[in-house]
Nucleic acid binder design. Sequence first.
RNA 1: GCGGGUAUAGUUUAACGGUAGAACAGCGGGUUGUGGUCCCGUUGGCCUGGGUUCAACUCCCAGUACUCGCCCCA
Length: 457
Amino acid sequence: MPKVKNKIIKKVQEKKAKVAGVPELINEPIKSNKKTPQLVRGFKDILPSEQKYFRFIGNRLESLAQDYGFEKIDPPILEETSLFSRAVGKETDIVSKEMFSFETPGGERVSLRPEATASVVRAYINHGMLNLPQPVKLYYTGPMFRYERPQSGRYRQFSQFGFEILGDKHPVLDAQLIILANNFFQEIGLKTSVQINSIGCAVCRKEYKTQLVNYYKTQKANLCVDCKERLYKNPLRLLDCKEEKCSIIKEEAPQIVDWLCDECKNHFVKVLEFLDEVQLPYNLNPSLVRGLDYYTNTVFEIWPEGEEKKSQSALCGGGRYDNLIELLGGRPTPALGVSVGIERTILKLKELNIEIPDREKRDIFVAQLGEAARKKCLPLYESLRKEGIRVAENFSKDGLKAQLEIAGKLGVRYSLILGQKELSEGTILLRDMEAGVQETLNFNKVIKEVKKRLENQ
RNA sequence: GCGGGUAUAGUUUAACGGUAGAACAGCGGGUUGUGGUCCCGUUGGCCUGGGUUCAACUCCCAGUACUCGCCCCA
């Protein structure tokens, strides 16, 4: 009620002011007309409340990397555009229409990275890592950029982490990489389904593509519009069309595993055997093909359990890329890798209400009253911190009420309170926040006393 | 690139062709020195542009953003 009244009074006063010829500027609120810049489409602020998810995943990542002997590499976010067009493939959607590319003031064609494998491989070649003991095992984490239509689980800037193993072609590595990736999801509490396939080497894939196209040509009349296009642009993609009529055609389509050369088939069989050794269940998925050109032989994805049909559900994807290093100008070197979509993983964690540990609680809040106390509390805070005590404060506040309120919200066990009275006595109050009782301590012994109390609990 | 839904305060939202209301959060006070309960006060908002109308936050159109699908991918 009074609010309405105030507003009316305000209006009347404004009118009066106008009538009296007071310049309007005076009554104008301080608010400027300038609009606050908004987020660029598809980009997000990762707010403090979201950070625990990233921290949680980051911690799991670090310990996994340690356990499996991977070393970290941080390639830059910006690379020559040609790195991606050569590695990922000129014809792929990612390169042909989804990169943030521009010219630098110096005239170089550069792109924000849409993925990191190409950069890791470039670094491997640039820094002569072939002279290190092979295989070289590297991991990375950071933002990637793709100019796609944003939607659930898809942003224009998103985070991935990934593991790359360069310089060895043994199938045990394929299996171990899949185990590692799957362990990650298991350990954060997600149930998963491993999808695996082999797309062979350049030779047998070419042969298979011919077979596939020949078969689909006989069915051309019944294909969807997209698939007619795929027939010429990217035949392997025919296999994961979701149109019902195409799925029926797919049933009868030749499967790549039947067209693998002896070497590729042998490799794939061994990978599966290793997986069997650790009793990791997997789904042999003949229609799993990957969107990046560099893949050869083993390809895999990990999906959340029970979400086989959804299109954006893959939490991670990876495979071998035995030709990539040579393609980028290195010596022929086999390699493989996996990358995990962090936001997608977080989305899943939230969906399943999986509990994520918060940041560690603070133990002691330092509250002060008056400028003199403030001056003593600032160094006290430093001393407590140096003693390894988890301490909190809000020194800019004046009232004790406000400070204790914050202490309560932080969930500290104790608050130290220093005011005029304590200052003159050389003491300080220790308040047990749970019990609500206080005792007076000698200021000079406060660190020792606080430590003693924290240890006793 | 294509299609559907949505757009009111920091957040969740209400109502209305005629001066926008709440809850939570924030800030201040009730205790000039005591939090987690309570009470009071207070800051702050109709996405942008055009049209219809005496009058548009409300109706219409366009744009933009968000969102959900398709495509593609993590």
